[in-house]
């Protein structure tokens, strides 16, 4: 007790932390007062409701998918581009040659331990199941929760597990690049066909037949599952390339 009193107050309370806490608390109070005032009379009719009433025209049982791929398809294209840019940036960062002094140090210290038997056997069992699960999620994007983004990431995770279990397993960057390029241009191509054909005349218009009667079947919703499958391939290839880059750098 006596020792504690000898330390001056400004050393016991850290001023910077205190100020930051106060700032954060003030911002929280500000946001809360602003937004809670809004929450009292929240808008009841939104864009989403208008899209929901129209959604049967896409013949997709999953309204989120028809928003992602059809109504807001252009946003998805931009988003896939951002993902591509990030993957390219990571590749660029890790492909730069290392300084020589650090290279020898890295080699001596970080020879990774070989994966144990549990890992190898587990991955051997899980890998096909995970890939199948990913493909299922991608292909059923217009019927059930899921789609290209989620399924693509599941497939990439399966390959990450392979990389961890087998030190010699390598995803070929050239092949990944081809996959990415083909699926990306396929996406744009489908969009352009929708623009050119006079029946739709909008970018990413649904030009394939999509009768409402087939709603809920695997082959339905016209062009939506095709685009989502392409998105799945692209996302899987990009995330796989990120994993491969990070593993090579480790």
């Amino acid at each position: 007790m006596s020792q504690r009193q000898r330390v001056p107050l400004r050393k016991r309370v850290r001023v910077k932390t205190l100020l930051l806490t106060l700032l954060s608390a003030w911002l929280l109070a500000l946001f809360l007062t602003l937004l809670l005032g809004q929450a009292r009379d929240w808008p009841t009719a939104t864009v989403g409701d208008a899209l929901l009433t129209r959604n049967a025209e896409t013949a997709s049982a999953n309204a989120v998918t028809s928003v992602v791929v059809s109504y807001r398809g252009f946003d998805t294209l931009g988003e896939v581009t951002v993902l591509f840019l990030a993957a390219t940036g990571i590749g660029l960062l890790f492909s730069a040659p290392r300084p020589r002094s650090e290279l020898s140090a890295a080699e001596s210290e970080s020879t990774p331990a070989p994966p144990n038997e549990m890992m190898i056997t587990g991955v051997r069992l899980l890998f096909p199941v995970l890939v199948l699960f990913g493909v299922y999620i991608v292909l059923h994007g217009h019927l059930s929760p899921g789609g290209g983004f989620q399924g693509g990431v599941v497939i990439a995770t399966a390959f990450l597990l392979r990389m961890l279990a087998d030190p010699n397993f390598r995803l070929d960057h050239v092949r990944l690049g081809w996959l990415e390029a083909l699926s990306g241009s396929g996406f744009v191509l489908l969009g352009l066909i929708g623009l050119i054909l006079t029946t739709t005349a909008t970018f990413l218009g649904n030009f394939l037949p999509h009768p409402v009667a087939s709603l809920g079947q695997l082959v339905s919703a016209g062009v939506i599952p095709l685009i989502y499958a392409l998105v799945g391939v692209k996302v899987g290839a990009e995330v796989g390339a990120i994993f491969q880059d990070m593993r090579e750098a480790a």
Partner: peptide, 26 residues
């Protein structure tokens, strides 16, 4: 399609999650 949650924020957040993952990795 009645009595359902608004699909637009869900679709936007779906893309935001993927972008967030990519930006975090970068």
């Amino acid at each position: 399609f009645t009595g359902m949650a608004d699909p637009v924020p869900q679709a936007l957040i779906l893309t935001a999650i993927v972008i967030g993952m990519a930006v975090l990795a970068l």
